[in-house]
Each structure stands twice: as C-alpha cells, then as structure tokens.
Design a protein around this nucleic acid. Sequence first.
DNA 1: CACAATTAAGTTGTGCACAACTCAATCGCT
DNA 2: AGCGATTGAGTTGTGCACAACTTAATTGTG
Lengths: 157, 157
Amino acid sequence: MSEQPTDTPRNEDFLRLDHQICFALNAASRAFGGVYRVALKDLGLTYPQYLVMLVLWEDGTTPVKQLGTRLRLDSGTLSPLLKRLEAAGLIRRERSTEDERSVHAVLTEAGTALRARAAEVPRRIAAATGCDLAEIRDLQTRLHRLTAALDTAAAQV
Amino acid sequence: MSEQPTDTPRNEDFLRLDHQICFALNAASRAFGGVYRVALKDLGLTYPQYLVMLVLWEDGTTPVKQLGTRLRLDSGTLSPLLKRLEAAGLIRRERSTEDERSVHAVLTEAGTALRARAAEVPRRIAAATGCDLAEIRDLQTRLHRLTAALDTAAAQV
DNA sequence: CACAATTAAGTTGTGCACAACTCAATCGCT
DNA sequence: AGCGATTGAGTTGTGCACAACTTAATTGTG
C-alpha cells in the first residue's frame, strides 16, 4: 500500500496544470524560442532554419530525408523551410543523380560564410540559461531518454 | 576548411547539434505533442486547447488575460483558440460587466462534463514517459528555473 | 473635467508542426 | 522482364506561436 508514499494518486491531482511535465517542457521550449529569435535576428534565420544550418555546417551536403531524421521533422515541414533558405541564398537544392527521388541540400558560399557569424550564438544562449555545463548536459541526457520513451510509446499506439 | 589549430574550447564545438540543449528540449516537447495528439483525439482537443481546459477546470471562469499569464500565451494565440473551443461548445466567452475590455472564458455544461473523460489522460501520458514521479518532479524544477532564467534574459535585451 | 497613456482583446501576416494526400522513382518478388 | 509495394519529396489544410498592429475601455494626471 506504500506505492506512492506522499502523493495521493488521484486522477484529479494529475489534472493540475503545474503538475504537467509537458507544460513545463513546452514553456521552456518557447522561452528558448524567444531568446533565439533575438540572437538569430542578425543572421536572418528562424530557429528551425538555424537547426538545418547546424546540420549542414556539421555534415555538409545532406539529403532532405536525412535532415528529417536528424531534426525529427518530416517533408511537410522541411520542404517549405528549405525553399525559404534557398530563397535567402544560403543553400541550393539539388536532385540526386543516383536516386532521382532524393534531393540534397547544399551550402552556397553565403551559407558557408554564415557559419562564422553564427559561431557566437551558442555562447550567448548558454549565458542566457544561467546554467553551468554540467547542469545542461544532465538535462540533455534526461530529455533524450524522455524523447526516446515517448517516441516508443507513440509508435506502439 | 582547415583552420582549427588548437584543442582549446572553440565556438565551433558549441555549434554541434547534439550539444544544443534547446534542440533536446524542442524534440522532447514535440514528442510529447505526438503522445498527447493520440490521447486527446477522443476528446476532440488539441494540446494547447487541453491546457486551457485544465486551467478552467482548476480555476473556473477565467479572464483571457489571466489564461495568457498562466499559459504564457498572448491574445494572438488565445483569441482564435478560444473561438474554436466556443465553436466546439465547450466554453462561452462573456464580456465582463465591471471592465468591458475584459472577456471571461466560462465552461459550458459540455465543457464541465469533459473533465471526467479527461481524467485518465495524465496517467496515460505518465505511463508513456516511463519516468517515475520523482524524476518528473526533478525535471520540472529544472525546467522552471530554466524558463525563468530565459525569460529574464529575453526581457533584458 | 479633459485627455494622453495604458490596458485587454482582437486582427493580420509569417513561419513552423503535422496529418493526409499525390506523384514519380526505385525496389522486391515472381 | 513485369508489376505491385515502398520510398522520398512535395502539396494542402488545420492549428499553434508570435510580432506588429488596431480598437475600445479604463486609468492617471494636470
């Protein structure tokens, strides 16, 4: 009978907003959005666009499919986003010659050059969190575990 | 591209995708979205709509302004969302008599009744996370601290 | 009292997230 | 080889997030 020592595990209690982990997560994610919006304004990037650029700077030319895997996004989100990056002159989209279904995102000169200007962004963000590196790393580990668990659960439905 | 001479901490390292706490957070938040989408489908609610209902079930009739404070959302998000909840017959919007600028969200019969059916949602979500209560609570504390720090930093810009 | 400043909702426009769908290229199997 | 199934992008439609703006009600101050 001592499964949940101090908590009354009634459904009622679980419905309280401030008990919802998802809300804390969602709020934190949007708070990050606000800080990034400021930090990325000079670069002319939104936060999801910045994520795509991170992958390209790190891995170079990348198929859309792989961007999706890496960023957990589907073509419905990526297609228009990549068009905007292309319109901004940061990438080109090139259809693969080996597999004509596949499209590769390729950095342009301007896209490659932007990396230098983006270099200071992470430090500014880190400063805004007010957390030390260990705290951040720990949080990341927990979040990865959580995401994996949630994806598994969703897939089982 | 061969201009990294030292092994001292470089901005370069901070640019790696898997070092970005914001990405882990964003991914976890969207993973939650997927699980909620399934759990809330029967209720005909989206996740943000569910959050509004949580506040109303907890606090009763609530001004739009206060919903915004509670959920960290502005009128640009809430106005159309509340219209959809009203169209679904779950709430009414009533202009305050004391202050005619203010609009209150009021639960209808159907909106109140929905609470019983929502009662099992949190348990299903908790199960999907695979975390115990202590882990969740700890994560929440960290996220609140993080959100507060980010909001402060954003306000200072 | 008068009236400028503030406040609460709502509107408009842009971009992201995702479901559901189409279409063409490729794969797998007989 | 033939052909149905699968795969990768893209499109369409809905809803959320948020900036920038409008409108109307209220407040504060001279």
